[in-house]
Design a protein around this nucleic acid. Structure first.
Length: 825
DNA sequence: GCTGTACAAATTTTT
DNA sequence: TTTGTACAGC
């Protein structure tokens, strides 16, 4: 079940015993016993926890105890009397991070008499600010927050309204462009001329139209939350000054992930007192594609002259081999601030590297390896499945593992995928709630008028739209009028009438349950504080939960899923139950909706033993004793698309992703690649990732699969095999692979690859003619396709005529065969 | 207005 | 290969 911690943070004071202002002020500084919280910090951590005033950049490498340091810093801020807890602004990126911080804070030996009320994500804090000053952005403070889905639908409307062919110019693309602009804090008027050509020269025009639509719907999207706040701060110095006075110390986590809008947001708030502490790791910036600017962290010292920079480099997570591997890879990136992770640990397994025949084989091997590790008996201790993770580049890679694990019955858990609140059934249910709370919510209306089917198709909906537009009212009113005026015929009319009546009834029930709680904007700090304390008293009857159930029943929405015979229906009903249960944590439907757009997640805590499968992105901030990193193949990882779209920059971000992946491992890290892989249903031969070439030989152990499944393809897939013969696998298994022709060929390829060359390869490039040991006409054997003859040679790629046809194959995946080698299949 | 078929597209993801 | 969307036919 979800816990709504953000809510606690912001409104939690409501539950506290009201205190007078002076009491609160004193309470703030109390509660920390001495400076015990500093005692178990290492020197760098301690320095960071004690440099309280002025700008500080804390470069915290993976696993260096950053959160612990932040906790001590907060304690120190309060204990030294510099700030009361509610004068500290602590910003994180994700709700998860905010939650974790709050939990960690609760566990500290000291305790604060007040909660950190300004701890949360950029977005949730922005909502809080924006609700208070909505009118300055031409909004009502009851504005709704659109999710991506609503956003796209709205954009479709805007595109259609502008008479643009939606097929040539898809709404998704426009959404991406506008999002990009918002990330850079660009309003329609500010978009640089050079970019106005976007979207068939009409990008800015549509952007403006979209913003107008949002305003008329009294709605904002995620990007707006930040953009509006920045705009308000810029246009109203008095408002800004108020927050500057109030939020005296700023802490920012994951600073490397901030985008321009967030950067401006922070700079505006910090520019008075400059008490800003940014924590981050430039080597872990992996969200550039979403607007994050590594540049923000790289130029921190310029932005804040006199800034102190402290590096946390002692790692408490991983073994030396793992750290060495990660460091060696990341060292290939240019423009780093530079850190060297070190550890006092001594022992440990080397990073393991293994090649496989294809993706299926890779999954099979990892499955078996996971089971073996679970049993123990390797060179290391037994590791439960919960301590093991498979980190992939893209979610498409997950399938192979799921398939395999299902067949062998290895329990697994997939992290990521559609979030709870993104599921259709949840969104529809929420749309019902939204409409019940605010009948003028047109987007919600559109979403559900015909869900379940009420016989209201495009035509009927057009009539409703036109009626509403003619009267300048909401769609619900338009529908009411259209029915009354007999503009709709037959079954639809009756159904629509019922629908409208239902909404009326629900809305009345809500209005009756909660008398309007008018909030007036406060003019100064004191009033602001009072206002925070005096929010809605908790109502402990659960009438809103019953009402929600009623809504879902009356609307026929529950029935719709009950009648659904598809296998997913049961799960969807489960989810709806879960949603209703989540309501219990709120005092009313309004409160739920207000926060749900930002908060709801499905991080259900699972007890049972399972291996985790997730993307590298999702793994940031986590750690596991055992980590598998499959699919290290050029084009897949680094992703071709990243390199095509962002060139060198893209490649460096991919490399940071590799760094993040390796540093998730505490004890054992296994990197693997496959020689063949099905991509969108087509078989492709793959080349080992260039990142593999960047691993340090001394810290890597090259494995060969134990000769099961009929052959030593493992050796063939990565290393050697250009020398033919049936004993290839045996020799490759024993040989010092780093001196094998195959390995050297790998090194060599690194030099020939497009996009980038490692700056300072420690490996010597040699032996060009090892690239292909084949000639046209040679007979070769391929694990999958059998015997064939080489027809063409193109660098390291061969065109081979097999019985089944001509295939392009990387030379490393065939072995030379003599005509006599033939065996019956 | 609904349902079945054809076709194109296809990372990473938070809020 | 799979998934989602667009359009034609019922």
């Amino acid at each position: 079940m979800s816990r709504f911690d953000e809510d606690d943070a912001f409104e939690g004071a409501a539950a506290a015993v009201p205190q007078s202002l002076s009491q609160r002020a004193m309470a703030g500084a109390a509660g920390a016993r001495g400076t015990a919280y500093l005692d178990d910090l290492n020197p760098a951590q301690r320095e960071a926890a004690e440099a309280l005033d002025g700008p500080l950049l804390m470069l915290a490498g993976a696993g260096t105890g950053k959160t612990k340091t932040l906790m001590a810093r907060i304690a120190n801020l309060v204990a030294s009397g510099r700030a009361r807890p509610n004068e500290i602004l602590a910003v994180t990126f994700t709700n998860k991070a905010a939650r974790e911080m709050r939990e960690r804070l609760a566990k500290q030996p000291f305790h604060l008499l007040e909660p950190l009320r300004w701890m949360g994500t950029f977005h949730s804090i922005s909502v809080k600010i924006l609700r208070r000053h909505a009118e300055l952005a031409s909004l009502k403070s009851s504005f709704t927050i659109l999710d991506t889905d609503d956003q796209i639908r709205l954009m479709k409307q805007v595109i259609n309204a502008a008479n643009i062919d939606e097929k040539r110019w898809p709404a998704r693309q426009l959404a991406g462009i506008i999002d990009g602009w918002k990330n850079r804090a660009l309003t329609p008027g500010n978009v640089p001329n050079a970019e106005a050509a976007a979207f068939g020269n009409r990008g800015t025009e549509l952007y403006a139209a979209y913003q107008d639509r949002l305003r008329s719907l009294n709605a904002v999207d995620f990007g707006d939350l930040l953009l509006h706040v920045v705009t308000i701060f810029q246009a109203h110095p008095d408002v800004l000054a108020q927050y500057q006075r109030w939020l005296r110390y700023i802490l920012v986590d994951e600073y490397q992930d901030t985008n321009v809008a967030q950067y401006l947001w922070l700079r505006l708030l910090a520019q008075g007192h400059k008490n800003i502490c940014c924590v981050g790791d430039d080597d872990q910036s992996i969200y550039g594609w979403r607007g994050a600017e590594v540049g923000n962290i790289l130029r921190f010292e310029k932005d804040f002259p006199g800034a102190k920079v402290i590096r946390l480099e002692q790692n408490y997570r991983s073994t030396p081999h793992i750290l060495a591997a990660a460091s060696s890879v990341i060292a290939q990136n240019a423009g780093r601030l530079g850190k060297t992770l070190w550890t006092e640990e001594q022992a440990g397994e080397k990073v393991r590297l293994i090649g496989h025949w294809d993706g299926e084989e890779e999954a099979r091997w990892i499955g078996e390896e996971a089971e073996a590790l679970q049993r123990g008996g390797r060179r290391m201790r037994a590791v439960s499945l919960n301590g093991q993770a498979i980190l992939v580049r893209g979610s498409s890679q997950m399938r192979a593992f799921e398939d395999r694990f299902l067949t062998i019955g290895l329990p697994y858990r997939v992290v990521g995928g559609p979030r709870f609140y993104e599921r259709a059934e949840i969104r529809n249910a929420m749309a019902y709630f939204r409409l019940a709370v605010s009948p003028e919510d047109d987007l919600a209306f559109e979403r559900i008028v015909n869900t379940p089917k009420r016989g209201l198709g495009d035509k009927a909906q057009q009539v409703i739209q036109m009626t509403a537009r003619a009267d300048g009212t909401s769609l619900l009113e338009g529908a009411r009028y259209a029915v009354a005026a007999g503009k709709l015929g037959g079954k639809g009319a009756a159904e629509l009438r019922r629908f409208v009546e239902n909404v009326d009834r629900w809305h009345k029930a809500i209005a009756a349950a909660s008398p309007a709680t008018a909030r007036s904007p406060a003019e100064d700090d004191d009033e602001l504080i009072e206002l925070e304390v005096a929010s809605v008293p908790p109502a402990h009857d659960h009438s809103h939960v019953r009402l929600a159930e009623e809504i879902l029943e009356d609307s026929g929405y529950i029935a719709m899923w009950q009648n659904d015979k598809t296998p997913e229906a049961a799960g969807r009903l489960e989810n709806l139950k879960e949603l209703v249960k989540a309501l219990e944590q709120f005092d009313n439907l309004q409160g739920f909706l207000e926060h749900v757009a930002l908060i709801l997640d499905n991080s259900s805590e699972e007890e049972s033993e399972k291996i985790t499968i997730m993307t590298l992105h999702a793994a940031k901030g986590l750690e596991f004793p055992v980590v598998f990193l499959p699919g290290w193949e050029d084009g897949l990882f680094p992703s071709q698309r990243s390199m095509d779209e962002s060139g060198q920059k893209g490649l460096e971000e991919e490399r940071r992703l590799a760094y993040v992946g390796i540093t998730r491992a505490e004890e054992l890290c296994t990197i693997s690649f496959a020689g063949n892989r099905q991509v969108y249903g087509r078989w492709q031969s793959q080349m080992p990732s260039r990142f593999i070439d960047e691993l340090p030989e001394a810290d890597v152990e090259v494995l060969t699969p134990p000769g099961l499944y009929g052959g030593g393809y493992g050796a063939a897939a990565g290393f050697g095999s250009s020398s033919g013969g049936s004993s290839v696998e045996a020799r490759a298994a024993k040989a010092d692979v780093y001196n094998s022709p195959g390995w050297r060929r790998l090194q060599d390829r690194a030099g020939n690859r497009p996009v980038s060359q490692p700056k300072e390869s420690r490996h010597t490039v040699i032996d060009l003619d090892a690239v292909s040991a084949f000639d046209v006409g040679d007979r070769v054997f391929h694990q999958k396709f059998g015997y064939g003859h080489v027809q063409e040679i193109e660098g390291d790629k061969l065109a081979v005529a097999f019985a089944t046809g001509v295939k392009k194959i990387v030379a490393g995946f065939v072995v030379a065969a003599s005509e006599a080698d033939d065996v019956p299949f």
